[in-house]
Design a protein around this nucleic acid. Structure first.
Lengths: 211, 211
DNA sequence: CGACAACCGGACAAGTTCTGTCCGGTTAAG
DNA sequence: CTTAACCGGACAGAACTTGTCCGGTTGTCG
């Protein structure tokens, strides 16, 4: 938010090594921050004009430093995916496997619930650009789940591939049947889902395992 | 699918009481069926041209009998919402309240998972057009949940408003982290969620109740 | 303080995609 | 066979989109 924002720096190191003017940097920071908010509220389909408007600058200013809309969106999303990966790494070091899984799950679902664009990106809406990140994250979730199962803290009739789908599920649904979800509906959803993951399986799971 | 389709009839009873030509009726049936499939695959954002193409007719034919794209979409969705309401009514007559809830939940989640457009409509994407239906459905779900709780078959720290969100959640997520969900992933999700709804609450639920 | 390069904003071009209309050619039905 | 109903798709026009360009402004440095 208020730190230098590596995204801004990444976008700033172009052309001759001259230091950019102060207003140029300020506007770029505004644009990146506006992009973050817009992506969260509107999703990856947000337009360049919409971001420029939010930042309080013209589109000309947008395209002066930003090569293309797509580059900006990928930069912003890549940063968030990095953050998620870090949370997963820390969770893997938790001495209590189940607690580690819960901590990661809460962070993951929160990020998805609070940013429409992050959900879309994790769902694969950004094509190959973020595919590498997604693969890495998948591996970390797999390890988190299998570690919890090995410790006897989780049902073993559930396979690790179910977990990403369940976490994605917990984060969705801002509106249903005309009801507006509270800010924390995702916490309630996640809580119930995690309860459903605990041992003592009440019955066998139907359907084939996902590919 | 192959029955006369009340939607077709509803669209056909216009202008002078003359019986329409056979080809006219055939094309309208094709259009309605194409709309159903297109709404399921693409969602309520599908275009009139896309539906006409799927039906194998021109757009002129589309607009000859159909007043507007919106009318067609609402007609198709209204029919499905009717079906859901009927399932709920039957579930309310089940002598076992928990079994009734499970049967309804499975049908509801299946319909949502199999039709992108139904999910959007239940999420409120169609504005006021379907608001009445949504309200009715809400009441039925409330009764199903409270009946199950009164019978002691379901945790009482969950409120009925949680259930529509949980069911919506179970149905979402065709892709996550680069993985393609199996046809029946929704069954696995729902199964785990229903397990989480059973009595013996492991802990208290965080967050405020939704409005 | 003055000069000037860097910067700014938004009108604009060019493209896409949408809904809905219109009309010349075709076909079902009495 | 006649004729009204029907068909298809070109078309109009509106509402978006991304990205460019240029006249006016401003930060920065000698």
């Amino acid at each position: 938010m208020s730190q230098p924002s590596s995204a801004v720096d990444r976008l700033l190191v172009d052309e001759s090594g001259r230091r950019p003017r102060a207003d140029a940097r300020r506007n770029l920071e505004r644009l990146v921050e506006a992009a973050r908010i817009a992506v969260a509220e509107v999703g990856v389909g947000v337009s360049a004009h919409a971001i420029a408007d939010r930042a309080g600058v013209g589109v000309g200013t947008f395209y002066r430093r930003i090569p293309s809309l797509q580059v900006l969106l990928e930069t912003v999303l890549d940063e968030i995916l990095d953050e998620i990966a870090n949370v997963a790494d820390r969770a893997l070091e938790d001495p209590d496997p189940w607690h580690g899984l819960c901590v990661f799950a809460a962070a993951y679902v929160r990020l998805r619930a609070e940013s429409c664009g992050v959900s879309e990106a994790l769902g694969g809406a950004c094509g190959d650009a973020l595919a590498q990140r997604l693969t890495e994250l998948r591996g970390r979730i797999r390890r988190l789940v299998e570690r919890a199962q090995a410790a006897g803290a989780m049902r073993t009739d559930i396979i690790w591939q179910d977990v990403p789908f369940l976490l994605a599920a917990a984060a969705t649904g801002e509106h249903t049947l005309g009801m507006q979800a509270s800010d924390k509906q995702w916490e309630r959803n996640l809580h119930i889902i995690l309860d459903g993951l605990r041992p003592t399986p009440p019955s066998t799971l139907p359907g084939a395992a996902p590919a």
